[in-house]
Design a binder for these strands. Structure first.
Lengths: 225, 225
DNA sequence: ATTACTAAGACACGAGTAT
DNA sequence: TATACTCGTGTCTTAGTAA
């Protein structure tokens, strides 16, 4: 069994990006991140290297550290266990976030996909998207759970030499009242921080919401056999 | 910052199901799980209770422990962070597993869905499924990553009064050679341990594989814009 | 059975410092 | 600057045992 302190060290290193690339760190910086002294950080990282959880090379000012496969595997094991244990089966998934203004390009895409949305979702969307910025970890977690549920896929197409990719949709109730859908374009414009919501109506006017207002998105599961 | 030891205690408790229900545990059992003595386990759990991470009631033989919202939130935070840090940057997703024999019912369902598979996947599947048992954590993790990618949804239907639910599919290359698809029926027969794979051909004969042989499933991402 | 207190011991930590 | 050694100190652990 891997000791909690070792695990925590790997976790912090991963946070610094040491999973996919070599992170540049000093033992002092690592100590700060771990909440321990430079000396203890040194001992910890030496232990991790000895046990084969990380690979390390020294440089003039600091070290390049990267998790080995063994190290990353430990973290994956924990993540998988947490997913199994925490993710509630058959529980309501609610995402909360704040309304932010978009770049206006949402409307262009909605219009382009409009007939296809109509076909897949059953409504002709209002020409524009409601951009919802995610601000809390519960909602981030809820998004992960949402992504574990079966989505509706709106197939891509080519129009006037331009190709439009598949769009992944999840049906939602906005503020538990208005039907809509979260749409996730493959070419994602806004990291994981902003969700785009479409609906048959103008959500801003219908729900009387403006920038920075809180909205909730309650996932509507696809009908099952 | 929550101490690693405290975190690990919550993690082990979660493992015992203390997230969604009250777990029955003794300090001795918990000590074994944590790799510490009964006394230390007692102190740890007392601390967690004092800090409001768990609620606890004593009974004649052991205690009923459940994570509070605060405690569960800590674990969710870690899970979310791990997901962000570990999950794929455009990395190949490969699942490995062993061939096991099915119950024969796979063929029935494949036949029932056959025209729809043809429509969505582009091939008429061989009448039967290859059941692949997942045996290692890397593959379990890979399955989680697979589920974060956009799937193909084969819509459900009703036939002769019987309803067939949506089926979620992911295109794969079996042993990096034969095109196929992992199909995940909504009414899941085998927990998360077994994946069902369909293909246009009889995979067993084409790849010359038999029960207990190892096969790899390499996810083929949907074409993107 | 349990949980948890006390006291003795182990061992992890960090200051100082060598490299 | 780095990292990492020694070593005194203190904390955390565990054995014994009470409740």
């Amino acid at each position: 069994m891997i000791a909690p302190d070792v695990w925590f060290t790997l976790y912090v290193l991963a946070h610094e990006g040491a999973v996919h690339k070599r992170a540049v760190l000093t033992t002092r910086k690592l100590g700060d991140l771990l909440g321990v002294s430079q000396q203890t950080a040194s001992r910890r990282v030496t232990y991790c290297a000895e046990e084969g959880y990380v690979s390390r090379v020294h440089t003039a000012n600091g070290m390049l550290i990267q998790l080995t496969k063994k190290g990353a595997k430990e973290l994956r094991r924990v993540m998988t266990n947490l997913e199994l244990v925490l993710v509630p089966r058959e529980e309501e998934i609610v995402i909360a976030g704040r309304v932010v203004h978009g770049l206006g390009e949402g409307a262009y895409y909605v219009d382009a996909y409009s007939p296809r949305f109509h076909e897949s979702l059953g409504f002709e969307p209002y020409s524009g998207t409601l951009n919802v910025k995610i601000v809390d970890d519960d909602s981030r977690s809820a998004i992960n759970r949402m992504k574990q549920t079966p989505p509706l896929i709106v197939p891509g197409f080519t129009y006037e030499g331009r190709s439009f990719g598949d769009v992944v949709c999840y049906r939602v109730k906005v503020n538990q009242k208005i039907d809509g859908a979260v749409v996730i374009a493959q070419r994602t414009h806004h990291g994981q921080e902003i969700l785009e919501v479409i609906s048959e109506v103008n959500l801003r006017s219908k729900l009387k919401i403006k920038d920075n207002d809180l909205v909730t998105l309650t996932i509507v599961p696809l009908h099952r056999a």
